[in-house]
Amino acid sequence: MASVDGVVLCVVSGARLAVSADQVDAIATAEGPVWDAGVAFGATSDPAGRALQCLGRLIRFDSIDVVATVGLPVLPVPAALVNTAHGALTGFVELSGTLWPLVALDRLLGFLEARSR
C-alpha cells in the first residue's frame, strides 16, 4: 500500500483537502494572481486565506496546516471517482478518524484552470 510522508491539510468552504508535502513549494499569503480552491467545491475561498505555491503558481485556501507524518497510508480512489477533477484526486488519508481527500496540486491546477474557462 502507498504511503505519504508529510501532508499539508487545507480547508476551504468547510471542505477538506490534503496535499503531499513534497508537492508544495511554499505556503504563502494569498496575494497577487491566485487560483481559488473553493471552485472545486462550487464555492469561494476566503480572500484573506493562505495559498500554496506549486509550479510557481498560487492556490488559495481558507486555512492551511502541516502535519508531519511518516508512512501515512494512502487509501485508493474508488472506481467511481477515478476521473474526478481531471484525475487530481489521488487517494485519501485518514487522520484521527477523519478522511481527507489527497490531491495532486498540478492536476488540481489544471482542473481549476479548466473550470475557470
Binding site: L75, A80, F111
Partner: peptide, 25 residues
Amino acid sequence: LTRVPGAAPHLLGVFAHRGEVLPVI
C-alpha cells in the same frame, strides 16, 4: 461524508468503511 473536489452533484461524498473508501451516490 467527506466531500470530494470536482465531484458531480449526485456524488454526495465518501466515507471509510472497513478500511475502504466508498463513494455515496
